[in-house]
Design a binder for these strands. Structure first.
Lengths: 352, 352
DNA sequence: TTGTAGGCGTTATCAG
DNA sequence: CTGATAACGCCTACAA
């Protein structure tokens, strides 16, 4: 702790006792009394350094330390409207995809001395909007991760206070999104290099903005690499969803498959293996995201890493930047994706 | 500290203010004006229903709705000191163990209309204490998940505002901890039933309160089931730590192993399998916690489930209860653990 | 039941 | 550079 050993003058020490006896937390009034100055001077000294003579500055700082003073955020927020706080709303706390985002945002927030308040929308657009509205009055800015509400609602929120969106592109609002091109390109090229001719893409939720982008990326890359690409729909982007889609994937006759996310890939692999199919000898599987646990499987999952942590972190940075510089551009920030080759993909083995 | 000078610029500041003044948030004064009553009446009508005549109540509510009024949390917090907010500090956001805790706390908090503010201690006792202190002034109560600070500091915090501890028992502070007995009992009995005679326990961090409890549980259960129990130390409770400890585990000659947590179990299994050892035919592995991804492995991990989500949820409930009922008991709440049998444990196969 | 007045801890606006 | 003093929006005795 920063408990100063250097006790002030005896007089000051007495004043401290007196001030403290009053109530729980010391206020700038207590400090003012101890330092022998006006409360407003204390406020100045503590909030905007340089506006006060060095002498009184030190006097005040010492008194503050002695009293173990800490600002009352609410009192401060009242006149200024600013709290050192920002909100993060994720679609589903259960989904590991968001863990990294949360972590990233939390970490860079803390670094800049901001506090993170967290909420979940439970995949509901209404809940999401409600939470967002409630939060707006409490925080300085908001990060929306994979928001489910519609563009207009997002823009409305953004008109009120700074908002940054992750994993979706909204016109007029600063966004942070993984750019799938590099990663999908690498994945498809790797697959093509291993002799695959036909690739199946297991799509995510129909309304998912990201799923559409990934499918586009896959198609483009396949065209370039002269691979045939077919699309398979999934019922839900989970391990179970992956299991369920195994049959359809098999039916396509593709020897390589890229899934919308890792969960699907893992479920798919489990089901395929349960059916006696050897991965990657008979079929290569590549996931998307590189979530926690992607390397727990046997073989460990090859996947296109989406730097979620970086997204969270970047979004937080962007937000804090907006908070400080006022306006700023609403240009969207793209972070790179990359292929992480592990065991679930590779050369096709001659049957037999 | 990083306050930009632009903030002080009269032009920018004025513009912002003006823009906000245009559609500034309605206050109880505005409502009072519209409804033709006194602000204090509005306050009463909005905060404690029943203290106002039905007629004016409706009048006020209509006006509030019309003005799209929403309370200013800071203004409210100033006189009352309460914010409808609680903090959660976890040792490591990276650790999947905490995901469920966060989720549980967040969910039940939201249900009761409380907001969750999240912080991480990065496994540092000092950081933890600092965050805790900072938070204390902002929140109504605090949940400490696997805290690293010492008991006295926790008690001091608890003396200030309600505090609930998860995964550790602190005298005089309400705690929520998984009770290992049932789960370890089931695990050991299951192992014994499958013909195992010797069991190795891979311990967690030396200073971990939980690791000690688990080892005790294992010892007790083994004694009861007439199994020989040996303890093996690990360098760190992670997948890598699990890999590193494989050699030592093998050296004990045990045919069954229980690990401090799932991460260790997964690493251990990977290393063992890499060495050509078949799980569970040659050795049974049982983890602890049942974290996300525990069933991604091949074979899926048998584990003693620690209801982390429930812990988070229970802790939040406990906290809100304290917040509402004032004092209350500091009795610790124990939640049950249970064995989840999956593929990594089973009957020993005759060598050959 | 409703109005009056004072206070919560800071910041902001003026004077001096 | 520093000291008064008024907001900030709401709550709560205390009166009426």
């Amino acid at each position: 702790m920063t408990e100063p050993k250097t006790q002030g003058a005896a007089a000051s020490s007495g004043a401290v006792k007196k001030a403290r006896d009053g109530k729980a937390n010391a206020t700038i009034y207590d400090i003012a009394k101890v330092a022998g100055v006006n409360p407003s001077t204390v406020s100045r000294a503590l909030s905007k350094p340089g506006r006060v003579s060095a002498k009184t500055q030190k006097l005040i700082e010492d008194a503050a330390a002695e009293l173990n003073y800490q600002v009352n955020p609410f009192a401060r927020a009242l006149p200024t409207g600013r709290t050192h706080t920002f909100g993060l709303i994720v679609a589903d706390i259960t989904n590991p995809t968001f863990f990294d985002i949360i972590r990233g945002a939390q970490t860079t927030g803390t670094q800049r001395d901001y506090t993170l308040v967290l909420a979940e929308s439970a995949e509901s657009a209404i809940t999401e909007l409600t939470s967002a509205r409630r939060m707006m009055s409490t925080v300085d800015g908001l990060i929306l991760a994979s928001p489910r509400m519609n563009d207009d609602d997002i823009r409305t929120l953004a008109g009120d206070k700074p908002v940054v969106v992750i994993n979706r592109e909204v016109e007029g609002v600063p966004c942070v999104i993984p750019d799938v091109r590099k990663g999908t390109g690498e994945a498809v090229r790797s697959l093509a290099g291993n002799g695959h001719k036909k690739l199946a893409f297991v799509a995510g939720p129909a309304r998912s903005w990201m799923s559409a982008r990934r499918w586009e990326g896959v198609q483009a890359a396949c065209e370039w690499s002269r691979l045939e690409a077919v699309r398979v729909e999934s019922s839900k982007p989970t391990v179970d969803g992956g299991r369920e889609v195994a049959r359809d994937v098999r039916a396509t006759g593709a020897t390589a498959v890229l899934t919308y996310n890792d969960l699907l890939a893992i479920g798919l692999m489990q089901e395929l293996q349960a059916a006696g199919i050897v991965v990657p000898d008979e079929i290569s599987i590549v996931g998307f995201d590189d979530i926690f646990g992607a390397d727990f499987t046997t073989p460990p999952l090859t996947t296109v890493r989406s730097p979620l942590g970086e997204c969270g972190s970047a979004a937080a940075s962007r937000l804090l930047e907006l908070l400080h510089n006022g306006g700023g551009s609403t240009e969207t920030l793209r972070v790179e994706t990359e292929l992480v080759v592990r065991g679930s993909s590779g050369r096709l083995l001659p049957a037999g």
